[in-house]
Write a protein that binds this DNA or RNA. Structure first.
Length: 447
RNA sequence: AGAGAGGUGGCAGAGUGGUCGAAUGCGACGGUUUCGAAAACCGUUAUACCGGCAACGGUAUCGGGGGUUCGAAUCCCCCCUUCUCUGCCA
């Protein structure tokens, strides 16, 4: 799901976040060498030039800000004096002051135009820079360089007659792509009978587990406005990946992370509310333009799918511990579903743009004989919080500081369903894992 | 969807062109008082940026954006949003 995260987070915003940077300028300034080293791990090509340009633009920005403020201060003072003169009827004196005022007005206009321009350039540049990888992120350029942290479970031995899930769903008539084609289009399957009930059971199972793990359930809107799209980074660059309802200028969410994380946009969170833990089930919509290929048959890639997402917002010193706990929660789901899986720590070259550290979880799909990504859990540190203006106050009366945001899928349904069907197929039908029996109201499909 | 009325600091609520970041009340925090607490009294109580070691000073922000003006919470335009009535609907 590294690619997925990348798709989701490449977009950036300028207009809504005048002073929000992606990487904080102060960090670049004070730790230039460390930043450059971290960007090298990402194989980010123009790091040195970009960082230098950021520092130069920031310098320019300060100068303009100072100039603007001084001119404006003088203008404000003159306005006060003119007010006093008008009151006492000294018209001529007031008119004399207006001459200087007109000058200052021109000056502040020039300054603020230039300032806005400089800030825009600075933003664009900062938005180009990816997050800095955590020190534990392995070196590497692509998926082959990801580090397998651990594997769990034994891969099932299937018979020669074993089928991939796209055949099983037809055999048992539980998921119907042709019907979806008729009413919507490709990639919008219809779940029927036990297929539909399995979906519902999985969603309830995931939500109940999340609640037991301390996550507060939320049910957010699945259409979001432009500001939210920019808040978590889907817009504007990845606009083409979201469905856009142009009549109302709203977007269908590609993941619940967008509305849930944006819940806390512009907040200064009271310390006693931390950490924030939310879980939410939503359908997710992705246009997946240009990403279809021969290996994405059946449930492997859809335009609409269901997912339970978990989100955490923590104090900086707690975020990496929180990430580990999130991953073990996701693992516990897979273990209860009795699906063999492995945990990958993504390398610098494969990691999503906004992430500092990402774990992907993949289940073994026995009939396809490949690993399927079913979850991606990331710590974004302050990268998203900076854009969201999501802060807290470490000490009463002290300065605000950015929080850390994290999220993970727990879990995305389609590939889980694919693996459940394939791995558990027998001559007598598909035997569901014990934990799902009460959730679904049946134990087998077919047979 | 149509008509009308609103959107001000943590909350409530003044303010309709001039020194207003904004009265007053409540809440919160600190202090005085008290054995302790309540009450009373005094004080503090937004965010961001710029300058400064700091103290502090400056700038911006009264739903969002633009405009008029020497000067805008206050006037004008557009948008968002809340409430009431009508319409429609699950």
């Amino acid at each position: 799901m590294a690619a997925e995260i990348k798709r989701l987070f490449l977009g950036f915003r300028i207009r809504f976040f005048r002073s929000a940077d992606m990487l904080q300028v102060a960090v670049l300034k004070e730790n230039t060498a460390a930043v450059l080293a971290a960007l090298a791990k990402r194989h980010y090509p123009t790091a040195e030039a970009d960082v230098q340009a950021v520092l130069d633009l920031d310098q320019r920005r300060r100068e303009l800000q100072t100039g603007h403020d001084q001119a404006q201060a003088e203008a404000n003072e003159l306005a006060r004096q003119i007010g006093g003169l008008m009151k006492t009827g000294q018209k001529a004196e007031a008119e004399a002051l207006k001459i200087r005022t007109a000058e200052l007005k021109q000056q502040t206009k020039t300054h603020s135009d230039e300032l806005a321009d400089t800030e825009r350039q600075l933003q664009q540049l900062l938005y180009k820079l990816p997050n800095l990888p955590h020190e534990s992120v392995p070196e590497g350029r692509g998926a082959d360089d990801n580090e397998v942290v651990r594997e769990w479970g034994a891969k099932p031995e299937l018979t020669a007659e074993a089928k991939p899930h796209w055949e099983l769903i037809e055999q048992y008539d539980i998921i119907d792509f042709a019907l979806g084609n008729k009413i919507t289009g490709a990639g919008f399957p219809v779940y029927k009978d036990k297929g539909a009930r399995l979906q519902r059971g999985l969603i309830n199972f995931f939500l109940d587990e999340a609640r037991a793990a301390g996550y507060i359930e939320v049910q957010p809107p699945i259409l979001i406005n432009e500001a939210s799209g920019y808040g978590t980074g889907q817009l504007p660059d990845k606009e083409g990946q979201m469905y856009h309802a142009t009549a109302d200028d709203l977007y269908l969410i590609p993941t619940a992370e967008v509305p849930i994380t944006n819940l806390y946009r512009d907040d200064i969170v009271a310390t006693e509310r931390l950490p924030i833990r939310n879980a939410g089930y939503t359908p997710c919509f992705r246009r997946e333009a240009g990403s279809w290929g021969a290996h994405v048959r059946g449930l492997n890639r859809l335009h609409q799918f269901d997912k339970v997402e978990i989100v955490q917002i923590t104090q900086p010193e707690n975020s990496y511990a929180a990430l580990e706990v999130m991953v073990s929660h996701i693992e516990s789901l897979l273990q209860k579903l009795e699906l063999p899986y492995r945990v990958l720590r993504l390398c610098g070259g494969d990691m999503g743009f906004t992430s500092a550290l990402t774990y992907d979880l993949e289940v073994w799909s026995a009939a396809q004989e490949r690993w399927l990504e079913v979850s991606s859990a990331s710590n974004f540190e302050t990268y998203q919080a900076n854009r969201l203006k999501l802060r807290y106050r470490p000490e009463a009366g002290g300065k605000t500081q950015l929080l850390h945001t994290l999220n993970g899928s727990a879990l995305a349904l389609p590939r889980i369903v694919a693996a459940l069907l394939e791995n558990n197929q027998t001559a007598e039908g598909i035997r569901l894992p014990q934990v799902l029996h009460s959730y679904c109201g049946f134990e087998t499909i077919g047979g």
